[in-house]
Design a protein around this nucleic acid. Sequence first.
RNA 1: GGCCCCGUCGUCUAGCGGUAAGGAUCCAUGGUUUUCAUCCAUGUUACAGGAGUUCGAUUCUCCUCGGGGUCACCA
Length: 462
Amino acid sequence: MVVTRFAPSPTGYLHIGGLRTALFSYLWARKNGGKFLLRIEDTDKARNSQEAAEAIVKAFHWLGLEHDGEITYQSQRDDIYAIYIKQLLDSGNAYKCYMSREELDALRETQMANKERTKYNGKYRDFTGTVPEGIEPVIRIKAPLSGEIIVRDGVKGDISFQAEDILDDFVIARGDGSPTYNFVVAIDDHLMGVTEVIRGDDHLSNTPKQIVVYEALGFDVPKFYHVPMIHNHEGKKLSKRDGATDVMAYKEMGYTPEALLNFLVRLGWSHGDQEIFSMDEMQELFNPKDINKSASIYNTEKLDWLNAHYIKNMPNGKLADLLEEHGLLLASHDKKEILLDALKDRAKTIKEMALLVNEIIVAPVSYDEKAIAKSFKSDAVEVLNAFAAKIATCSELHLPSDYHHLMQEVVDEMGIGFGKIGQPLRLALLGKMSGPGLDAVMAIIGKDETIARIDKAITAHS
RNA sequence: GGCCCCGUCGUCUAGCGGUAAGGAUCCAUGGUUUUCAUCCAUGUUACAGGAGUUCGAUUCUCCUCGGGGUCACCA
């Protein structure tokens, strides 16, 4: 059974980087018929973990990712951690350290002055004398002082660390008794039955410490996959400014879950040349062994393209629902299908599409002056009047093709090219020179509105 | 600074000793379209540098350079 987990610290929302590791973990669990667990790393009790968890679950829900089982809150597991602290103390794998903050600071300063690595000096490791008064001791684990620690990483390969380079007897419980990160991670992953840890490679250098904990407790070490970071345009860690914002902001901006997930799954992972992945395909094809070793740069050009792709291929009913979330009520519009068909391959986001819809159903309040000067001369008025007169006499006008036939008739009768009617008509209906097919526009707004807009434009420019 | 990781078009990436270094995006051009967008076609652009190993290196090794991560009683 493959068990993965997503273990965010409660910053209050889920961002792009976190979402990607969550997605990878989710896909790998689903592919193997395993479990995808959620744990909130809130050993720092100052923050409201409940709120953070809700925000993350909400984002997962929007994207269609569901975690299995109950959410684990580290802040509620102190009694569990206490058992393991005691176990290590009893077995002699950990000890109380009475060094004061001042003494520790002084030690560091000396080491820095001597250009040495800053590390705890092991003063209380095998201490037998009398203990200082008035100090709440921290608990330190006895880490190996020499030798090699190998992290077997599924992405990067085997990585070797020398204990003397990176380890010291690090703190596993603070003076107030609360446990620290590297300690609880190992315990929780073990207790939750996590078999594969997929996380950002900023955790790579923590891993040897966690391995020390696993081994001190006699736990099996899980399989690790450290996925490279996502960088911003400057090549630095992603910050709020450049994309590490709340994932839900992408919903606000009009991106679809399909596009966002597809975009993220291809950031750092690939399956040959394939670009488009449905959720089913992702679950079928994802394998962490195909994750890249190098960091990637966050750039939304491809996200825009993917979003446009998914909008283009979306059933109209679903599209209407999404538009409704952006404040556009289309349910009662009798020409909804024509409208959506005319616009769905023109928008990069749902939000943009909502704007495009409004550009059609709301009459223009101004006209492109340059285009008016060029294409709205007296002969154009004549053509428009002829066309308006023609549609006024027709009673059954519903489809784009109905309007197209009438435009064709006018063109034929007057012996002119299509451009002679198209350009002025477009200006009259939309106020500008771009937009969807005019026959569709007219079918959407209807005969009366078409005539009204033609009259209005002629009045305004004669 | 110590330790660790990384280095193919601007960007996302394929490649796993022999390729005209492929795809996607972006950009440009052409076609389609009454317009714009879509769509289709075409095109510009990449193996960080230097030594090895080898008949042959983008691919393997080492060095340099460059970038990133991490060094807490934060997670």
